[in-house]
């Protein structure tokens, strides 16, 4: 007779694991990845490949070095690589993309304790560091392969400068056939991915809706073109995929709503009054920093019932 296993209840568990969650996020990002290859050509695939490979390798080597458990199989490093690539221009030198990936995984994620322990979104923080370090190449916007020009301004930069002639139409914004980071341009693909994550209940609607609604409302109040503000720039990518990262955002429904509103306000502040044309990355990073406080404020209250 074999020894019986003795363990604390429950003796069954749900099917969802960290790995399946990350896999779903990857699936949700695929339409945008495919769109980027169609819009910007095969080099986009190369940038994505380098980012993923370097992220996974950094995670593996660092954990080996620190004798931590290998967390490569949970696929979170793949997601970070994908998201970072999505935030880079397609013309980025590959060594810079690799540098960014190392920063994301080692500095932002692993140095703070690895998956679940980092306080800021690795892909966003790495992107911001790269914008400071390589400001030239990080803002060299390549035009889509279908266009007859070589370089092009992003829609938000065009709008900020008031260059109405170079502002793309709604349809162009929806399809993503314009200059910008490689994963952020195709609004349609990002929406598809977002809907997939919502349907699979990987994310809840609270953050993206609060984020997007705040930007829409503020644009309306400030007399800007609302639809244009929603589809141009990194708002959809940020709202569905980066502001919903578990470790760096609040996990209760009110926490998520406050987080989303905060992101929306900061985005609008930077877009309309700041020096930069786009503020989604900074808004998420700043709100990441406030997350512990929001989480504490909005923690679920135990149901203690009436006074005994």
């Amino acid at each position: 007779m074999n020894k019986l296993i003795s363990s604390v209840s429950p003796h069954i568990s749900g099917k969802r694991t960290t790995q399946t969650i990350m896999l779903d996020v990857i699936i949700a990002l695929l339409p945008a990845a495919i769109a980027s290859v169609i819009i910007f050509g095969l080099r986009s695939l190369l940038v994505i490949g380098v980012c993923i490979a370097v992220c996974v390798l950094s995670e593996f080597l660092f954990e080996k070095l620190c004798q931590r458990d290998n967390t490569v199989p949970d696929l979170s490093a793949v997601v970070t690589g994908l998201l970072l690539a999505f935030n880079l221009p397609v013309s980025i030198p590959l060594w810079q993309a690799a540098f960014g990936s190392i920063v994301a995984i080692i500095v932002v994620k692993q140095l703070f304790g690895g998956i679940g322990q980092n306080f800021a979104n690795p892909a966003i923080t790495a992107r911001i560091i790269m914008m400071t370090a390589f400001s030239g190449t990080m803002t060299a916007w390549t035009a889509p392969v279908t266009a007859d020009t070589v370089s092009s301004a992003t829609p938000l930069a065009a709008a900020a400068k008031g260059e109405i002639a170079s502002m793309p139409s709604y349809l162009t914004l929806l399809l993503g056939n314009h200059g910008g980071c490689l994963g952020e341009t195709c609004a349609l693909a990002l929406l598809l991915g977002g809907i997939y994550l919502l349907a699979k209940r990987i994310i809840s609607w609270h953050t993206p809706v609060a984020f997007i609604a705040t930007v829409a409302l503020m644009s309306l109040i400030c007399g800007k073109d609302v639809l244009y503000q929603l589809m141009a720039g990194g708002l959809l990518l940020g709202a569905f995929f980066m502001a919903t990262d578990y470790a760096t955002t609040p996990s209760t429904k009110w926490g998520k709503i406050i987080f989303g509103i905060g992101c929306g306000l900061i985005t609008v502040l930077i877009r309309f009054w700041g020096n930069l044309p786009e503020g989604v990355s900074f808004s998420i990073l700043l709100m990441n920093l406030l997350t512990p406080y929001i989480a504490k404020m909005t923690r679920n209250k135990p149901l203690v019932g009436g006074a005994k």
């Binding site: 967390t71 998956i115 679940g116 322990q117 578990y246 609040p250 996990s251």
Partner: peptide, 13 residues
């Protein structure tokens, strides 16, 4: 595996 902070535990309690 490590906690990823998803909050499912508290949101299902």
């Amino acid at each position: 595996t490590p906690c990823i902070g998803c909050g499912e535990c508290t949101n299902h309690c």
